[in-house]
Design a protein around this nucleic acid. Structure first.
Lengths: 204, 204
DNA sequence: AGGAAGTTCAAACGATCGTTTGAGCATACG
DNA sequence: CGTATGCTCAAACGATCGTTTGAACTTCCT
């Protein structure tokens, strides 16, 4: 299980896998360091504590994910011809691409777990560091759905993001039929999610 | 925190609260028995183990919830004039009523947690004991949405149930405006969820 | 009243947890 | 060459976990 990468990277990789499988409490530092092929004390040496390691696991993936989402959103935001589909693509596609990397699909499970756990510390960390992304998407949704008042819009966004988070956390388990390529498969999933989200956001 | 009810009931009540707040691993039997006002050994005496206690927490609420759902479904199932709204009401309303009982809203959080945790033991327990409910609802959805092939239908049901579970797990936190009654408030939420679910299931 | 069955209690069990320690190893710089 | 500096290691720390034990206490039946 060891093999490649620096000690920090091997710890982060193993942490992602074990956090997804057994949760933050359920995965012990002894299982984690054994899987990573590093010494037990390495976690506290490199990260300071288990909690800091959890935050670093989030930071590593979410920095890339949110940068990708915001970049895609910037391309369509505010323009005249922009559709709901465009904005939802900017939200969904980066997560889908992440899900098809090495352990990226496992990270979506970790994210869904953090969503379901109403742990205040973790929620505050996520809100402080990445809340601005959701705020930008919400602003764009508001522009494209002017017929909805704010409470109604927030309701729908909450329901849609809940459904998408849940769906993406299961991507590791979906097995595509062997006759369709990886790319086609991903495209089909994206279309499912986008059409569903459009319906949920824009129904009369 | 003790006061009323038998020892078993006090343990189940405290377990529901603490499992929702800190998760199954995070809530210790010592916190739990202290909150219930019973002796530490009482859990193992009455339930056999912590894991059996977890199952009993689910069983107590899900037995009632699913019975209520199936009863409501039976009233509209198979009939000629039945609409998607009718079936979704049968699914959503019992959970909503549960959410407005004493600790019922906390149980929906526990359920959402179990959903997000991909723990095999717990998933198998839920599937074996309550899978038939989901199967009956799926059959009725299939009857009302004949234009959808099976994979498409399963996709949409999965997305809708994910959104509903997520939404219902947050009911404890929604504060209704003081000028609307409890009943009106519940009705508004039900309408939100049903309209959203109809859109997600039946979009072209 | 007296014994049987059911329940509660304080105390302890071994296991495992996150964290800390201090010695040992490596690499690089003067 | 010597000595810093950064990192790894085995070992131990105290705390907390789920579970077990055996005695004490209740409740109820004959």
């Amino acid at each position: 299980m060891n093999s490649s990468g620096s000690t920090k990277e091997r710890i982060l990789g193993a942490a992602e896998v074990l956090f997804a499988q057994r949760g933050f409490d359920g995965a012990s530092l002894r299982q984690l360091t054994a899987a990573a092929g590093v010494n037990l004390a390495a976690v506290n040496y490199h990260f300071g504590s288990k909690e800091k390691l959890v935050e670093e696991v989030f930071r590593r993936r979410l920095d890339a994910l949110n940068a990708s989402r915001l970049k895609a959103l910037a391309k369509v935001s505010g323009a005249a011809g922009t559709t709901l589909e465009d904005v939802l693509e900017a939200y969904i596609r980066p997560a889908l691409e992440l899900s098809h990397d090495d352990n990226g699909s496992l990270f979506m499970r970790v994210l869904a777990r953090a969503f379901a756990e109403h742990d205040d510390t973790l929620r505050q960390f996520l809100s402080e560091n990445y809340g601005h992304v959701m705020r930008q998407f919400t602003a764009e949704f508001a522009r494209l759905l002017p017929q909805l008042d704010k409470p109604e819009l927030y309701w729908r966004i909450d329901l849609v993001t809940g459904a998408l988070t849940h769906a993406m956390s299961g991507f590791g388990m979906i097995q595509r039929k062997s006759e369709v390529s990886e790319q086609v498969h991903r495209e089909q999933i994206a279309q499912h999610l986008i059409r569903f989200a459009v319906a949920g956001l824009s129904h009369p």
